[in-house]
Write a protein that binds this DNA or RNA. Structure first.
Lengths: 169, 169
DNA sequence: GAAATTAGTGGGTTGCAACCCACTATAGGG
DNA sequence: CCCTATAGTGGGTTGCAACCCACTAATTTC
C-alpha cells in the first residue's frame, strides 16, 4: 500500500504555480482502479459522441444485437443485453420512430414484438462503430497495434470469466 | 462489423428453455466496450464492498492520497483527485466525523484546512486496499499472475496517456 | 485599509441509469 | 371456458454523481 512516503511537512517551496498533480500510487497500483477509470473514460467519450446524434449506448447495443443475431423479440433483447423490459420498450420506441428498426407482431405468438434492423439502422450502426473505433484510437493511443491486441484478448477473457451477468450497460 | 448472420427467421426450435445469451460480437470486438463493461463491473463490486462499511470510492481515494502524499490542504486534494471542492468538503466531513482524518487550520495560511490521515484512517485504508485486491482477484480470475502484470502495465500506460484529466471518480 | 483573490462550506439542481408496478393483450393448460 | 403465465408498455420512483451558486473567512495587492 505504498509504505514509503508520508512526509509530515506539506510546505513545498510554494514557488510552483500549478504542477500536474499525480494520483496516489495506492490507487494506481490497483488494476481494479485503472480498469474502472479508463473504462469510464472510454465509455464517457463514446457516450459523448453518440449524444451528438441524440443516441445512447443502449441504442447502439440494440442495433448491434439485431445486426449480429437477426430479428428478435424484445424479450430476447432484454435477456441478451440485460436491461429492463420497460426501458427496452422506450429505446425501441425511439429507434423505430427514427426508422432504424421495425417492429411487428410475431405471427406465431402475437404477444411478442419482433424487432428487426432496417437498412438505415445498419448504416447508422456502421457509423457508430466507426466512432467507437475512433474513440478507441484516442484512448489506446499509447499502445501499438500488437499491444492493443493483447489488451483486447485479455479483456475478452476477463469479460467471459465474469460470473454474474451484472445488470446494466 | 460481423457481416455474417442475419438469418431472417427467429423461429428457433423453442425447445431450448433458457440458454445463456451471448452479447453481440460487434460490441465484443470493441476494446472500448470491454473496457467500459469490465471497468464498471470492477468499480461496482468494489463500491459494493465499501458500501457495506458506509463508505464510497471517494473516501478511499482521499485516504489514499493522504497516505501517499502526506497532509494536504483540501484544495490540493481537489486538484489531485479532480472532484468538486464542495463535494470534497462533504467527504472530508464524514471521514473526520468517523475519526479517519483530522482537519486543522493551516497556521501559515489560515484559509486553508490541512487534512491529515489518522492511525485509524491508515488501518482502514489497509483494509480497503485488501478488499480492492480481493475484488481484483475475482475480476481477473481468468488471468494468471503474468497476464495480470501485463494488463496492469498496459492499463497504466493508457491511463497516463489520457490527455484531459476528466472530472470524476 | 479597501479591493480583489482564494479556501472552504452549505444548500441546492440536474441528468441519468436502474428499477418497479400496474395494466393490457395474448397464450396455453386443465 | 377459466385460470395462470408471459410479452410488452406507460408512468412512475429512487439513488447517485456531477455540478453550480451564494456566502464566509482569511489573505494578498496596491
Amino acid at each position: 500500500m505504498a509504505s514509503e512516503n508520508p512526509p509530515p511537512a506539506s510546505e513545498l517551496p510554494a514557488s510552483e504555480p500549478e504542477r500536474a498533480p499525480e494520483l496516489p500510487p495506492t490507487l494506481l497500483d490497483l488494476s481494479t482502479y485503472l480498469l474502472s477509470r479508463v473504462g469510464k473514460t472510454a465509455r464517457g467519450r463514446l457516450a459523448e459522441r453518440l449524444a451528438e446524434r441524440g443516441l445512447r449506448l443502449w441504442d447502439m447495443a440494440v442495433l448491434a444485437s439485431l445486426a449480429d443475431f437477426g430479428p428478435q423479440a424484445q424479450r430476447d433483447l432484454v435477456r441478451r443485453l440485460g436491461l429492463d423490459p420497460s426501458d427496452l420498450a422506450k429505446v425501441a420506441d425511439q429507434l423505430a420512430a427514427a426508422g432504424y428498426v421495425e417492429r411487428a407482431r410475431d405471427r406465431a405468438d402475437r404477444r411478442r414484438v419482433s424487432v428487426s434492423i432496417t437498412d438505415a439502422g445498419r448504416a447508422l450502426l456502421a457509423e457508430l462503430d466507426a466512432q467507437a473505433r475512433a474513440v478507441q484510437d484516442e484512448v489506446l493511443a499509447p499502445l501499438d497495434a500488437g499491444e492493443r491486441e493483447v489488451l483486447q484478448s485479455l479483456l475478452l477473457r476477463v469479460h467471459r470469466g465474469s460470473g454474474e451477468p451484472r445488470r446494466g450497460l
